[in-house]
Design a protein around this nucleic acid. Structure first.
Lengths: 152, 152
DNA sequence: TTATCTGCAAACGATTTGCGGCAGC
DNA sequence: GCTGCCGCAAATCGTTTGCAGATAA
């Protein structure tokens, strides 16, 4: 589906080498195709070639990030999540309590993005925005009775 | 200005002890009154009492976070930033390239927050949202000529 | 009193880096 | 063959934690 050739081409155009490791890592990112951690990518890559190191995964992620081909986002935890930049556009609402994530359509933020562009000249990333807050269940629990959450 | 008594009261109401360390840390957060890192708080606290440890700062931040009195947000770097939850409401636009931050009025996101509430029952935090993207300068540089940024 | 808090220092997990050898172009 | 890349392992950095003594209530 997604033409991973373009990613490799982008790398080549930038003057970087296409190594088997990079091809494998890129393919893993495309196959997993979600918001994934470096560890998850590493695990997938290892199934293809067990001799690829985690350091290489991180270095490749840096490279792709720099090229704008992938997006790094923080979901509230200590680990970064990565996703293809052109992966089906959507945003996230993350519950501060139970960490549950809701996917939001990207058009929800269109008006905001337009305003940022017009008023500040800021070109907002149209993808993988993260909004924190409280999901229905946790909000009810927190603002009525106790402040505990079942899945905290 | 801001009544720091209320923070201490909140702590007391929760059954936690009011220690000098906590009072100092809370005061530091209120005095710095922005989006500050644990290290910054630690530095400020040290000027009042050099024997307060960084661990205590983190533990107090956890406590305040759990109580919802402060908000932890990630500005794209490796360090967390903290702010009083009721600190003058605003959001942030952070440039992925030069890390420059623009402060945005909170009402910009009001319509979005309303929609999240209506459509998903999600109560979005009305404060300290972080939008990533590219500032005017970096966007021009990146999408016309080279992909380097002066302050990267 | 006594349960909670503190300081210390060591542990921790995610990420980065120095280095010698290897390999894409 | 040259330059950039890789694997390894150690370093780093922010943050967390175990423990024994101190202290607010």
């Amino acid at each position: 589906m997604t033409e991973q050739g373009s990613l490799l081409d982008d790398l080549k155009a930038r003057g970087t080498r296409i190594t088997p490791q990079r091809a494998i890592i890129i393919e893993a990112i495309e196959t997993l195709s979600g918001h994934i951690t470096a560890e998850q990518i590493f695990a997938a890559v290892q199934q293809v070639n067990a001799y690829i190191s985690l350091a290489t995964v991180y270095r490749t992620l840096d490279l792709l990030k720099e090229l704008g081909l992938i997006i790094e986002s923080n979901m509230g935890g200590p680990t970064s999540h990565y996703a293809l930049h052109d992966h089906s556009t959507h945003h996230h609402a993350v519950c501060r309590m139970c960490r549950h994530t809701i996917e939001l359509p990207s058009d929800l933020f269109k008006p905001i993005a337009d305003q940022l562009q017009t008023r500040y000249g800021f070109m907002a990333d149209d993808n993988h925005l993260v909004v924190f807050g409280w999901c229905k269940g946790c909000a009810e629990r927190a603002f009525s009775g106790g402040s505990t959450c079942q899945s905290a």
